[in-house]
Write a protein that binds this DNA or RNA. Sequence first.
DNA 1: GTCATCACTATCCATAAGGTGACTATATAT
DNA 2: ATATATAGTCACCTTATGGATAGTGATGAC
Lengths: 133, 133
Amino acid sequence: MDSDDRSPFGYDAFRRTCPSHTVLEMLASKWVYLTVCALRRGRLRNGELARKLEGITPKMLTQTLRVLERDGLVRREVFAVIPPRVEYELTELGQNLAGLLSQIRSWAEEHTPEIKDARARALANHGEMGAVP
Amino acid sequence: MDSDDRSPFGYDAFRRTCPSHTVLEMLASKWVYLTVCALRRGRLRNGELARKLEGITPKMLTQTLRVLERDGLVRREVFAVIPPRVEYELTELGQNLAGLLSQIRSWAEEHTPEIKDARARALANHGEMGAVP
DNA sequence: GTCATCACTATCCATAAGGTGACTATATAT
DNA sequence: ATATATAGTCACCTTATGGATAGTGATGAC
């Protein structure tokens, strides 16, 4: 019954004390999704990322990149020039993940119409499932 | 150059005003991940989910399920019995997504050792890249 | 001199996430 | 009579996160 509930790796993301749970938590961020997807084609500078990730604040961009760097998904390269130049690129591990995250992104884009419809229906039905006294 | 940046669906999750951006935002939640994965094998009752999603509070569980229901990923069935019985199951759209999210979960579990190592290394190096006055 | 660029950093505030305890209703078990 | 179980809701509170805004230092363009 629990056959496919446990992964064969000894880690179980359902358990909140399992390290894999924190990995899942790290991945559960819209900016992580988008940043990894953005870097998929190749290295980018901070400013290029900022323009690509529409609406991201410098703080969130830095924060996201630091997390990705800490977790070994992104490599940061600093050039000692003026004005400063910093480039980011995916590590092999990051490339590996990027494939999956791109699929999620594609899924989101592909199924947006259905979800929009579902949301509209939910809005229209608000209260209709309730009690009719 | 922008060839694979835009999906062929007209939606672009990189644009913050695009509806698909809000879909990605909805997916970027650890409890959404886990709830969808948990329902993958079949319908579950509220209590069963609460036990499976270790550490989730009743409030968060309800909130997550309402979002998933609103977006058409989960179907909620209420049985008019005492004590109350409510069952949740994935819709076809939800099943479709569950495959992808399970892959993410598997990825997280599979690569947890590498990420743990990367985190340990980052911790050990804290400050070593900084300035040495 | 003023402005912009670059890659940040710091600060503040609003929102969201999450925790706790109380409460609903009814049937069964003790 | 009391307790348990079910599937929640509601109110209150604390903490964490997200986002907005402004500032840093050095340089080059105007």
